[in-house]
Computed example of a mutant assay.
Amino acid sequence: MQSRSSEQLTEAPQRSPLEVADLRNRVRTVIDEFLARQTEILADVSDDCAPLIRYVADLMDGGKRLRPAFCYWAWRSTGAPDEPAAVAAAASLEFLQAAALIHDDVMDGSDLRRGAPAVHRRFAALHRDGRWSGDAEHFGLSAAVLAGDLCLTWSDELYSSSGLNPADLRRGHGIFTGMRTQLMGGQYLDLLEQARADRRRGGAADRARRVMHYKSAKYTVEHPLLLGGRLAGADDELLGRFSAFGLPLGEAFQLRDDLLGVFGDTHRTGKPAGDDLREGKRTVLIALAYERATGGQEAVLDSLLGDRTLGAAGVDTLRQVIADTGAPAAVERMIGDLLERAVAALGPAELAEPGRSVLIALAEAATDRTA
């Protein structure tokens, strides 16, 4: 497909590709209006349900909106018009992301998310402040599970009510449902890998990449691209290009996330420094560190990794050991290679502007970030 007009080419990103076509603000508006409707529904149940909406809304107030962006710009790159219904369908992915974050923080026992208390911590504080009976932590975990479940339900509802043609929605439905199922499978593999870590040292890097593939890479980039393409009626050839672009890019995105989880600045990432180390996350970074470690370095990794009581000094020690193994540099090279492969895969595709330009800019933004 050819560029649609010279005027559209001026939309190509000069700064953040997430701001092109005012997409971030439009996605936020869709979310706010949708949650306002859900507030009315839950108000009929009880005013006591208000925190379910409030805490979800606060969580969703932040975020990069990458998934809606990949979905929307895949739609536009087919030559499809700038349509509010397409923005709404893309915004439904933010509710899936919210569900994943809420449940992930429960599973990891995380205190912070996006610089604020995690949802389960907020519910626990609500219990303590109210001096209610029972265990505050259990209440917090239970309420957060319900909030995450609501977000999954709302993701489906927003998709179905987006305003797109029902035939288009049916065409994208297989991608939409498969994405959610594979995400949950990836989450389970992540739990399983941490539980078995001490017994399954061999092949750890391959297993970590498989977790990354399903827990993050596919649902962050590939599936949103395929969903946008499907909704717009893209042919199999273009959908194949989207996959070839999205999978390596999604892996590169998660590898950057893994580096930030160990070496990132808390003020930028919004999570406590060293949380991934305390949780014993078996990422590709950690697998490579073990592969390259000397006997002494391996002993330090075994001793400190996964220690929930690890203080700042212990975190610094682990960071230094991981850096000394050369694993971070190896991960950086992997990110560069994956990004190059992704952009090359998109190259031959006939894409409308500004869709092509924004997708390439999104690829660079997703892999070159500090939060």
Rank of each mutant, 00 (worst) to 15 (best):
N25Q: 10
A50L: 10
D44F: 09
T39G: 12
D82R: 07
V27A: 04
V30L: 02
A43C: 05
R24T: 15
I41P: 05
V30T: 04
T78K: 12
A21F: 15
D82T: 03
V30P: 00
G62E: 08
P81I: 04
C49G: 06
L52C: 10
M60K: 08
P68R: 01
A90G: 04
R67F: 00
C71S: 12
D82A: 14
F70W: 09
V27L: 05
Q38L: 11
M60W: 14
Q38A: 10
C49L: 14
A80F: 06
D58S: 11
Q38P: 08
F34S: 04
R65H: 04
R37C: 14
F34H: 13
W75K: 04
E33Y: 09
V56S: 15
A36Y: 09
D22P: 02
P81T: 03
V56W: 11
D82W: 07
D61I: 07
I31R: 03
P68S: 08
R76A: 07
L35W: 13
K64I: 04
K64E: 00
T29C: 02
V30N: 02
R28Y: 03
L52S: 09
C71F: 06
A50C: 08
E83M: 09
G79C: 01
T78L: 11
D61N: 13
V30S: 02
I41A: 12
S46H: 13
L35P: 07
S77P: 00
G62T: 07
V87H: 05
L66R: 02
A36W: 09
L23S: 05
A57L: 07
D22L: 04
I41G: 06
V56N: 12
V45Y: 11
A90M: 00
A69L: 03
A43P: 06
R54N: 08
L66Q: 00
P68A: 05
G79I: 03
D22H: 01
D32W: 13
T29D: 12
P81V: 00
D48L: 07
V30E: 02
A88K: 13
A86Q: 02
R76E: 01
K64D: 06
E83R: 13
R37T: 15
A57C: 15
C71W: 02
L66K: 01
A57S: 15
Y55K: 08
I53W: 04
A50I: 06
D47S: 10
L66M: 10
A80G: 07
A90T: 00
Q38F: 10
A36H: 10
A89V: 02
S77H: 06
A21C: 13
V87K: 02
I31W: 02
C49K: 06
A80T: 06
A57G: 13
A88S: 15
C49S: 13
L35S: 09
V56E: 09
P84G: 12
A74S: 15
V56I: 12
T29M: 05
P84N: 13
V45D: 09
R28Q: 15
A43S: 14
A50G: 11
A21V: 15
A74P: 04
R67N: 03
R26D: 01
V45I: 13
T78F: 09
D44W: 04
L59A: 12
C49A: 14
A74Q: 03
G79W: 09
A74W: 00
A80S: 14
L35I: 13
D22V: 00
L52W: 11
A74F: 03
A43I: 05
R26N: 00
V27K: 07
